[in-house]
Design a binder for these strands. Structure first.
Length: 590
DNA sequence: TTTTTGCCTG
DNA sequence: CAGGCAAAAA
């Protein structure tokens, strides 16, 4: 078969592309790539310059601190080192060294968080002192994690502490992504030059940011960085940074996040129980017994969210942990019992593992998108892909440019994540980004369109081109079955029209042709491209013509008396497969 | 053995 | 289109 070459080459590259950065083990390594974190770090520091003038550079556990003499890796690995240290002894005295470092880190993180959450940042002094103690608590929790690696923390308070930490990290991640959004939009706008003025672009970015409930401080950051990091190199660095930050965020305490996430998902879906995030945050001290950190944590949490009021969360927390909460604060376009996670597929409840996959997917998606900002489409409704096919084949749409540029950024799902369910409903198609347990009608549409390129796709090709599908034996065979059915219909039509040609008195094979006006083509197009919104490649017409001619010849020669007369034709046709455009691969992030 | 394919049926 | 089956292919 001639199916293999293209997909095989993709197989390896895809896996290698994302997994290394996504696996936790990646961080047991020197974290060379994490050094690119200095980009964001630098930006943050730049933005915060006036506020942090008195801050020692060493406080920043960012690679840029290397300049001040720290080991290049110490910053990114000190967590492990300190945890290791802590694990050897649980006496409080042993905390002094690591606590010192962590306290510093916490201070910086708190300031950054404070800035993000509160433009005025008028509580920095307060947050600093809090941070020291919060950090101590966090450290304690880390020790506990070490002792109980598999066991779920019985005390809610520590889980929440960890969750809060996740909140912060996720927020940072989102901020980074938002910066990238801005930059990528600029990039895209250059690609789709027409119809896109700089001002519109700004507005788009602004609206995205607004929907993300970003505060003014963040927007300022975005502006600063957008002006400073437009180069490809900077983009690359940012990508790497995002990858690593994401991995770090997701990998560090994914278990804790998910335990909370899954429970919160269920608990907070009912508006009566946990109306919003702040409520949840305020519950922290109640659930948590008598740990000093808890009250501190509470303050910290409020500090994190207060600038937006109870109904408005900062973006990162909502990204993952608080999604259901946010759903309470906005219009609910779908039934209460349905979580956003369920939007994507059938409404079947998702299990923790699926949610985990969802989260895991999101990171790579984001980073991957950033790696191919312009031409590579994101997973999207096949209507959109069809549109794009038309666009690329000359039928340039009028108002599509904006859509493409925004969609291609792969950021709509970020927007959704931030709780704008209205928007999410409008863009529900993007929920295909989720890993599907089964095949959806959209997948069927996609498969049908792919049939225009390949009649005999290998299972590996299918896996490559359906990256949002969780493949198993059943799914694979179902997809293969689809193509088998497609072929069946295809060949039936061929035979039918070949016989019709003979009946019509056609004598020469050369008189047989298939054009877009042919009845045969219309029949096929109706079957595989019912909406007729996909520009069928000319190659398919050629293949169809060859197929029809093959049938015509065989029937003319009375080969159809042989029970297996079609097999010879099949052998010919299976060699006529062409590569499926990369566009179809869409979100091949994993 | 497992995976694919083709055919038939509903 | 999916299921079932048998045969072919890997």
């Amino acid at each position: 078969m001639n199916l293999s070459p293209p997909e095989h080459s993709m197989d390896g590259s895809k896996a290698e592309h994302l997994l290394p950065c996504f696996r936790r083990s990646a961080f047991d390594e020197p974290l060379a790539s994490y050094h690119s974190g200095s980009i964001i770090s630098h930006l943050l520091r730049k933005t915060l310059h006036n506020k942090l003038t008195s801050l020692d550079n060493n406080l920043l556990y960012l690679p840029s601190a290397n300049a001040s003499g720290l080991d290049p890796e110490s910053n990114s690995t000190d967590d492990f080192a300190q945890e290791e240290q802590s694990r050897t002894s649980f006496k409080d005295e042993d905390l002094s060294v690591s606590e010192h470092l962590q306290a510093k880190r916490a201070r910086v993180e708190n300031i950054i968080r404070g800035m993000a959450a509160s433009p005025n940042a008028d509580r920095e002094a307060e947050s600093e002192s809090e941070a020291v103690r919060c950090r101590r608590d966090l450290l304690k929790e880390n020790k506990r994690k070490q002792r109980l690696p598999q066991h779920q923390e019985p005390s809610q308070s520590h889980t929440k502490t960890s969750k809060d930490e996740e909140c912060h990290k996720l927020k940072e991640q989102l901020q980074s992504m938002q910066r990238l959004l801005h930059q990528l939009q600029e990039k895209i706008s250059h690609v789709h030059e027409q119809n896109y003025s700089e001002n519109e672009e700004r507005e788009d970015a602004g609206s995205e940011l607004s929907s993300l409930r970003l505060d003014g401080g963040c927007k300022d950051q975005v502006k600063v960085e957008a002006s400073g990091f437009g180069s490809d190199r900077a983009m690359k660095n940012l990508r790497e940074t995002l990858k690593c930050e994401l991995t770090r965020t997701v990998g560090e305490s994914i278990d804790a996040v998910f335990k909370k996430l899954s429970t919160n998902l269920l608990n907070q879906l009912s508006p009566c129980r946990s109306p919003d995030c702040s409520e949840t945050e305020k519950r922290i001290p109640e659930d948590s017994p008598s740990d000093l950190s808890d009250s501190e944590e509470n303050v910290k949490s409020r500090h994190c969210f207060e600038s937006h009021g109870p109904e408005h969360q900062t973006e990162a927390l909502s990204l993952v942990v608080r999604k259901p909460s946010l759903s309470q604060a906005v219009k609910r376009p779908y039934p209460l019992h349905q979580t956003p996670f369920q939007m994507g597929y059938g409404g079947a409840p998702l299990h923790d593992s699926q949610i985990l996959e969802h989260l895991l997917k999101y990171g790579p998606h984001s980073t991957f998108c950033l790696e191919r900002p312009s031409p590579d489409p994101m997973e999207r409704p096949w209507e959109s892909l069809a549109m794009r096919s038309k666009l690329s084949s000359g039928h340039l749409g009028q108002h599509q440019t904006g859509l493409v540029s925004v969609d291609a950024l792969c950021l709509p799902h970020v927007k959704m994540e931030c709780g704008d369910l209205q928007s999410m409903a409008e863009r529900s198609s993007f929920m295909t980004l989720n890993i599907q347990e089964g095949l959806t009608p959209n997948h069927l549409k996609k498969a049908k369109l792919m049939f225009f390129y390949t009649r005999y796709p290998s299972s590996s090709l299918l896996k490559n081109f359906f990256p949002d599908v969780k493949f198993n034996r059943c799914i694979t065979s179902q997809l293969i079955k689809w193509f088998s059915n497609f072929r069946e219909f295809y060949y039936i039509q061929m035979e039918k029209f070949a016989r019709q040609a003979i009946i019509d008195g056609v004598n020469d094979v050369k008189d047989i042709s298939v054009t877009r006006e042919s009845e045969l083509f219309r029949s096929l197009n109706m079957h595989y491209n019912k909406a007729n919104d996909f520009q069928v490649p000319d190659r398919f017409l050629e293949v169809a013509e060859v197929t029809l001619q093959e049938f015509f010849s065989a029937i003319s020669l009375s080969k159809d008396s042989d029970p297996s007369w079609k097999k010879a034709i099949y052998k010919v046709i299976c060699k006529l497969d062409s590569d499926v455009p990369e566009d179809f691969k869409s979100t091949s992030y994993l």
